[in-house]
């Protein structure tokens, strides 16, 4: 995926190497010399895609629309909406002994969809290259493929395991809401997906993995700027 993005960003001071005690003092004095910017996303996304599992018929047309119409190739792996992994044996699946969902269970298929997390945005915070940014006017959290080095740190930081990795481009990729007209929603033959105004669902959805994100010192320091 190649995009020319006009990023809006909230700029923070780079304050690495300074004693924590000194931050507030320096900030309040407005000292800015010798400091580069750090991206911390605080703006909310305008919308997000939500799925109704009782309606999902498991055809994966959403996965196909996501990758074919955006990337020109069909690939379940890089799809930013994830059906296949829950399709056969459910969300918790065999490893937990709870394979009661999916085709082999009661038929329920949970659509895994990017939550467009509110601040703090784990994938963006974990990116050492500030490659996950917001794209106006929708403010979806998107991967700036020019900056992405393919280190996969974002993948390990997303509690919902929603970051995909495209081995053709060697870049991470994630849901960018198709700039407000999500292809997956348009493609669903069962009205099981909706594009709605953003609301915080992150706490009501069980996480998939324990994120093991490493936040850079610079960002930690920047966080401290607000969270004193």
């Amino acid at each position: 995926m190649i995009m020319n993005l006009n990023f809006s960003r909230r700029q923070f001071l780079k304050v690495s190497g300074l004693a924590i005690a000194g931050i507030s003092a320096l900030s309040s004095l407005g000292v800015t010399y010798g400091m580069a910017e750090v991206i911390i996303i605080t703006e909310q996304a305008e919308g997000l895609v939500i799925g109704d599992p009782t309606k999902c018929v498991g055809c994966r047309r959403c996965e196909l629309a996501c990758t074919e119409f955006n990337d020109g190739k069909a690939s379940s792996t890089i799809s930013r909406i994830k059906i296949n992994r829950n399709l056969q044996l459910g969300y918790l699946g065999l490893y937990t002994g709870k394979c009661d969902e999916g085709k082999w269970g009661i038929g329920l298929i949970i659509q895994d969809i990017c939550k467009q997390c509110p601040h703090p945005v784990p994938c963006a915070d974990a990116c050492p290259n500030d490659a996950i940014v917001i794209k106006p006017p929708i403010n979806a959290r998107v991967v700036d493929s020019d900056k992405c080095t393919g280190c996969k740190m974002c993948q390990r930081s997303c509690p919902w395991d929603m970051i995909s990795f495209d081995s053709d481009t060697n870049k991470a990729t994630k849901c960018f809401l198709c700039d407000g007209k999500p292809k997956c929603v348009e493609a669903c033959p069962a009205e099981a997906l909706k594009y709605v105004r953003w609301r915080d669902l992150s706490r009501s959805v069980p996480t998939r993995i324990s994120p093991t994100s490493v936040i850079s010192q610079e960002k930690i320091q920047a966080c401290m700027g607000c969270h004193k």
Binding site: A65, T67, E68, F69, N70, D71, G72, K73, A74, S75, S76, T77, I78, S167, D168
Partner: peptide
């Protein structure tokens, strides 16, 4: 188990239209 892709040769807009 496949993690690769099936490539669409034509323009993605045209493919979308055809689909």
């Amino acid at each position: 188990r496949g993690t690769g892709s099936v490539y669409i040769s034509g323009k993605k807009e045209e493919w979308e239209k055809a689909i």
